[in-house]
Amino acid sequence: MSGAAQRLRALWSWLRALSGDDAYERYRARHGRRHPDVPPLTPGDFYLQQQQRKWSGVSRCC
């Protein structure tokens, strides 16, 4: 039973990573490690920056 729950949890974390749902959490973790003295971006600002970057180059194809 716990094996199945573990597998479901793993699937969920894969899904979050694939869709970018966990991007802010990963950013916070990394930011905390590298620049603990600088206040991090808010989720809204981070999302905005991420979208600006993503859509200023070729990121979709025919």
Binding site: A17, L18, R26, Y27, H31, R34, R53, C61, C62
Partner: peptide
């Protein structure tokens, strides 16, 4: 840099790359 350069697991990169190349063509 945690923004555009991020070491990522190959299955995730595969997913992103496939979603990017697969269009209506």
């Amino acid at each position: 840099n945690g923004r555009d350069f991020i070491p990522t697991h190959r299955v995730i990169v595969f997913g992103h790359h496939f979603a990017a190349i697969a269009g209506p063509g």
